[in-house]
Each structure stands twice: as C-alpha cells, then as structure tokens.
Simulated scan of single mutants.
Amino acid sequence: MPMASRDIEAMIIAALPDAQVEITDLAGDGDHYAAKVTSASFEGMSRVNRQRAVYAALKGKMGGELHALQLTTAVPE
C-alpha cells in the first residue's frame, strides 16, 4: 500500500521537530518521492549521517510502504 506524502512529512517532523520538509511525488503513484529536509540538527553531520537520521525517522517504512525516496538534506542558512 502506498504511503501518503503527509505521513512521510509527519514522521520526519516527529523525529526532527525543527525540520522544514518538502515532499514531491515523482511518479504520481505514492511510491516514489523526493524529499528535501532542512534541519539545524544536521549541523556537523556528514551527508550519510543526515540521511541515516531521516531514514531512522521513517521507522522501517523504506522498502515496504515507501518504495523510493530521493533525499536531499541541508542545514538552514
């Protein structure tokens, strides 16, 4: 069953409360998304660790309800 973009956003914000999250449905099928996540908590983290933090927020949904997520992370300017 596909995952709604609002659910992805809510899970990320629950784990990273200061995050600004932009979700784009890439294929219109609810399975392929792009997400841009901006959070001060990413300060000093490597790109890999930032992505791990976001994937951890999704609590195992990747590969199941959420098939693909093109992820971009950033620290606020």
Results as ranks from 00 to 15, higher is better:
residue 63 G to R: 04
residue 43 E to V: 12
residue 23 I to T: 07
residue 16 L to T: 02
residue 65 E to Y: 07
residue 42 F to D: 02
residue 31 D to E: 15
residue 63 G to P: 06
residue 67 H to I: 02
residue 12 I to L: 03
residue 19 A to R: 01
residue 58 L to Q: 01
residue 67 H to Q: 06
residue 13 I to T: 09
residue 44 G to C: 09
residue 10 A to I: 00
residue 62 M to C: 00
residue 66 L to N: 06
residue 28 G to R: 02
residue 66 L to I: 07
residue 46 S to F: 06
residue 71 L to H: 12
residue 4 A to H: 14
residue 26 L to P: 12
residue 3 M to K: 12
residue 70 Q to K: 14
residue 35 A to S: 05
residue 11 M to T: 01
residue 53 A to R: 14
residue 48 V to L: 15
residue 14 A to R: 14
residue 47 R to L: 14
residue 48 V to T: 13
residue 72 T to V: 12
residue 58 L to N: 00
residue 42 F to V: 04
residue 72 T to C: 10
residue 24 T to F: 13
residue 23 I to E: 04
residue 42 F to G: 07
residue 49 N to W: 03
residue 67 H to E: 07
residue 68 A to N: 10
residue 20 Q to M: 01
residue 4 A to Q: 15
residue 59 K to H: 11
residue 33 Y to F: 14
residue 55 Y to V: 05
residue 22 E to I: 15
residue 53 A to S: 11
residue 61 K to E: 12
residue 23 I to H: 09
residue 49 N to I: 02
residue 12 I to G: 00
residue 44 G to D: 04
residue 13 I to P: 00
residue 24 T to A: 14
residue 15 A to W: 04
residue 4 A to Y: 06
residue 26 L to N: 14
residue 49 N to Q: 14
residue 36 K to A: 15
residue 20 Q to A: 07
residue 71 L to E: 03
residue 44 G to Q: 03
residue 56 A to C: 04
residue 45 M to F: 06
residue 11 M to L: 12
residue 22 E to S: 13
residue 54 V to G: 04
residue 62 M to A: 01
residue 43 E to A: 12
residue 49 N to T: 06
residue 69 L to M: 02
residue 20 Q to W: 06
residue 72 T to A: 13
residue 76 P to R: 05
residue 76 P to G: 07
residue 55 Y to T: 04
residue 58 L to I: 00
residue 20 Q to S: 14
residue 26 L to T: 11
residue 6 R to N: 10
residue 56 A to H: 12
residue 15 A to S: 13
residue 6 R to C: 09
residue 22 E to V: 15
residue 22 E to Q: 15
residue 21 V to M: 01
residue 16 L to C: 01
